[in-house]
Simulated assay, not measured.
Amino acid sequence: MQFAIDIPHFGALSDPLLVAELAHEAEEMGWDGFFVWDHINYKLPDLPQAMAIADPWIQMSAIALRTSRIKLGPMVTPLARRRPWKVARETVTLDHLSGGRLIFGIGLGTDRSGEYSIFGETTDARAHGELLDEGLEVLTKLWSGEKFSYAGKHYQLSQAQFLPKPLQQPRIPIWVAGHWPHKKPLRRAAKFDGIFPLMRERALTPNDFREILGYVREQRTQDTPFDVVAGGLTSGTDKARDAAQVASFAEAGATWWLECYLPQHTLEQVRQRIRQGPPQF
């Protein structure tokens, strides 16, 4: 199992130089990855004013330049609100900048903070799913470096070709997020390189992961490596309890553990946990 820090790019954590320094500390302390959320708008119920928010792609560039080993990426990008050709340029450039360390986390996103509606975008979840699936097809074809045309419901490309190709081959790893117990995100994830399951009502358990992974395995048609991402918070101080917590998910099939922080957490809480190092089991 590998271990990563996952933070929102809000408030004090909107400072790209600070976040790059945190990622450097995480690398020094033995963490395997450092991921950031991808939002353009976010509201907290108890805060009437807007929050300070950074552009996550520029933050990730800063992280890439301040580190040399750890994986990095967005957790996760709502591809439906992006042009896939712009994302193709950003991801390949970041993959080269980082020396092939990018992991691309994707999902549908929500309109909870008006990230679609405020800007006149559709809020229909079915349309978002269509945009996501077409966007993934366009994105991976652009990554191939080959010339192609595409005629979909939402996107049309004529004789498009992007170079350079990503450093990582056959492609930049794609992790697909989805809310359990919905099955469509799991079928989507089975086509790619990893699954990041979430649940709105409660925290996922190791038994949930066994069920999720069992379904994904039924859908897989290839035997390439496939990551299963679990998330939560460990104490950093009770080593035995932390080890038992992450081991239970590893035994259920998880390959990554993310320390998932929320906007309500402070900079000092994040920094302290980074300095305590990843769980050991």
Rank of each mutant, 00 (worst) to 15 (best):
P56L: 03
T122Q: 05
R187E: 10
P16L: 08
T91A: 14
V229K: 11
N41W: 10
S149E: 08
P45C: 01
E268S: 09
G30P: 14
T93F: 03
L262V: 03
I195P: 04
L139C: 09
G33D: 08
R126A: 13
P164A: 10
L262M: 11
V76S: 04
G152N: 04
P181F: 05
K153H: 10
T110H: 01
H154K: 06
Q2D: 15
T205G: 05
Q49V: 06
F162W: 11
L132H: 02
H9M: 12
S235T: 11
F148H: 10
R101C: 00
T234I: 08
F196P: 00
D46I: 11
P170Q: 05
N207G: 04
F148G: 15
G109D: 00
D242V: 04
Q159N: 15
I172A: 10
G194V: 04
Q168S: 06
E259S: 14
Q269R: 11
D38Q: 03
L233R: 15
Y150E: 13
G105A: 00
G135A: 07
M75Y: 05
E27W: 02
P170V: 10
R188C: 09
M75S: 13
P78N: 03
D55G: 09
V76F: 01
M1D: 05
K141F: 01
T234P: 01
P206K: 11
G277M: 12
I174A: 03
M1K: 03
D15P: 01
D55I: 08
E28R: 15
A52W: 00
R187W: 03
D32L: 00
L44I: 14
T224F: 14
L136M: 08
F281L: 15
E218F: 06
